[in-house]
Each structure stands twice: as C-alpha cells, then as structure tokens.
Design a binder for these strands. Structure first.
Length: 218
DNA sequence: AACCAGGAGACAT
DNA sequence: ATGTCTCATGGT
C-alpha cells in the first residue's frame, strides 16, 4: 500500500474533516500548544474561557496576569506549563511583527524560528506551519507513527524528522499539497480516535486487519 | 478505577 | 543520541 493509497482509503471512509477546528489563525496557534498530549474536547473548554475573558490575541494574553491566564487554561491540563508556553509564544509572535510579517518568511526559516520558542516542539511547529500558515508540511504525531508502523510502512523506531521527510517525499509530486497534508493528518487522527484500539478490529474499520495498532509504538 | 489524550523540556545515561 | 520523569484535566 502506498502513502497516497492510504490517504484515499481514509478519505473515502471518513470524508473531508475541514481542519483546523478554529476561527482565526491565532486561535489555531494557541490550540496547537494547548492540544499537546491532550484531548481536543478539553482544549475547547480552555479556548471558550479565553474567549469569554477576551484573551484571544497576543497583546491581550501578555497584558493579562499569569494566574488569570492559567485559570482559563485549567481544563486543557498542564495548565501552569501551558500558560508559560502560550506566553512565550505570544512574546515571540509580537516581537516578530505578528502574522502579517511572519507570512513572508520562507518555510525552513519560519520552522526554525518556531522551534526556538520555548514549548513549541516539532509537532506543534508543524501544526502551526500547516494549519495557520498554509505551508506544505506533513504533521507527524503518535497516531501517524502507530498506523504507519502497523501497516508495515515504517518499523516504528524512526524519529520525527525521518517520518516527516518520508511522507513529504512520497507525496512531493501530488498537486495541492497543503490541502492534501491538511486532510491527511486530520484523517489519521480521526481514524486513530475512532477505530482500531479494539481487538479484533471494528467491523467498519476501513483498513480492517491492517489497522491493528502496535501499542508499543509511540 | 486505571488508562490515555492531536507533546515538550529537563535531566541522566 | 536515546530513555525516563514530570506536567494535569476530563472522558471511557
């Protein structure tokens, strides 16, 4: 099975996911940090609190007291850690001149800059690049590694960058890579959430027995 | 009632 | 380079 064939199977079964589930680009970036090792339903509560407190801009977040910010983030878990991470991201974001300035930078330098922000690792940076800046970057997460390892496309011991490059190379000639990577990552996540944790596999799993996750792969 | 979720950083080996 | 610990709430 090729990487594109896998995408087609998932898309045929689940349909378009229209990610990222957020209204503004800034909300995407905040959500990318808040969803680190956390269920999205918990992130939604935190974002709702931020909206109620009018804290959905970098300026407003930096002007707010750290404990007020942390209280808003409480339902998303790790709230003290994430409050500091959101804050450091906002400082960087404003220092760089905001989205209007950042959008003119090339993808490699933008990615390096994001990785330099405390609390922004590889996946969070790629979420932001793909879903806020519309750059053709494949977002790799735990679901991606588990699924691809189970399908025999990976052995499961590859590092983040290796997996990302493998996917980007395999799909390099496809048209509209931003839209493709957007859907692909969303589909992998939705698939991982809905299926294939049960053994034997769910009757309606689009990948059937190929989809038995290897739980040892993280 | 344990287990886990759309990770990242600090620290030891 | 690679492994282990911590951070924390809410759903199953």
């Amino acid at each position: 099975m090729t990487y594109y064939a896998l995408y087609q199977k998932l898309f045929a079964h689940y349909g378009p996911q229209h990610w990222w589930p957020a209204k503004s680009r800034f909300e995407v970036m905040v959500g990318a940090v808040l969803t680190q090792n956390t269920a999205w339903s918990n992130v939604e509560r935190a974002i709702a609190h931020l909206k109620r407190a009018r804290l959905l801009s970098a300026q407003a977040i930096l002007a707010a007291s750290p404990d007020v910010l942390a209280e808003c983030l409480r339902p998303s878990g790790y709230f003290n850690v994430k409050a500091a991470r959101i804050r450091s991201f906002c400082e960087w974001f404003l220092a760089q001149g905001g989205y209007r300035r950042l959008r003119h930078r090339d993808t490699p330098s933008l990615r390096q800059a994001l990785l330099g922000v405390h609390g922004v690792g590889a996946e969070t940076a790629d979420d932001i690049l793909l879903y806020a800046f519309n750059r053709p970057v494949f977002v790799v997460d735990a679901y991606t590694k588990r699924l691809l390892a189970r399908l025999g496309l990976l052995n499961g011991s590859e590092g983040y960058e290796t997996v990302r490059h493998t996917l980007e190379r395999a799909l390099a000639r496809r048209p509209d890579r931003v839209a493709l990577f957007n859907e692909y990552h969303a589909l992998v996540v939705i698939h991982g959430k809905n299926h294939c944790r049960a053994r034997p596999v769910c009757a309606d799993c689009p990948l059937q027995k190929e989809c038995l996750f290897d739980d040892s792969v993280r």
